[in-house]
């Protein structure tokens, strides 16, 4: 990886990086909100879908190894956001990897809402959409960056 290459990533691909960074911040904000609501012991207000948010938050799938899933969403969003500031050759690939893990895990959680919990949490679905958009944008960015490096 040459210094010129790093500059190329930093200029030509700004649009993709900014998009991913914004999506990451939004996903982290949703995770933080749900984590905060859970820590307060309150039920999150559900903008749509009736009481689905409470049902999903109340389900046994709302935790992973004793930690609220929303906390993972918040930390993942922050990690994704942070990765967009990396300046190494592999940075776009790292960003894509984080976004893809988030997108796939969100898809799993969405499938649980649809087929196991039988309730929809609008915050969780919005977060899943954000992760998928981030993965798509980050994937295109990584693909282009690898082409520029090779």
């Amino acid at each position: 990886m040459s210094a010129a290459g790093a500059v190329t990533h930093g200029t030509r691909l700004d649009g993709g990086r900014i998009t991913v960074a914004v999506l990451a911040l939004l996903a982290a904000a949703i995770g933080a909100f749900l984590t905060y609501e859970r820590a307060r012991g309150t039920l999150p207000p559900c903008p749509v879908g009736g009481g689905g948010c409470a049902t999903v938050q109340h389900s046994r799938y709302a935790e992973l190894a004793g930690i609220p899933v929303s906390t993972f969403g918040m930390l993942g969003g922050l990690a994704l956001f942070g990765s967009t500031f990396l300046r190494t050759a592999s940075a776009p690939l790292v960003t894509f990897g984080i976004a893809l893990v988030g997108a796939l895990f969100s898809a799993y959680l969405t499938s649980l809402e649809a087929f196991t919990i039988n309730a929809w949490c609008a915050w969780c679905v919005t977060s899943a959409v954000l992760w998928w958009l981030a993965a798509i944008v980050a994937g295109g960015r990584a693909y282009r960056a690898l082409g520029a490096d090779a």
């Binding site: 690939l93 894509f96 990897g97 893990v101 796939l104 994937g139 990584a142 090779a150």
Partner: peptide, 17 residues
């Protein structure tokens, strides 16, 4: 080459999930 790299990244992500 980049296709292989992307595929490898996807495989790692799938294993992690």
């Amino acid at each position: 080459g980049r296709g292989t790299t992307i595929t490898a990244a996807c495989a790692i992500a799938v294993v992690a999930v």
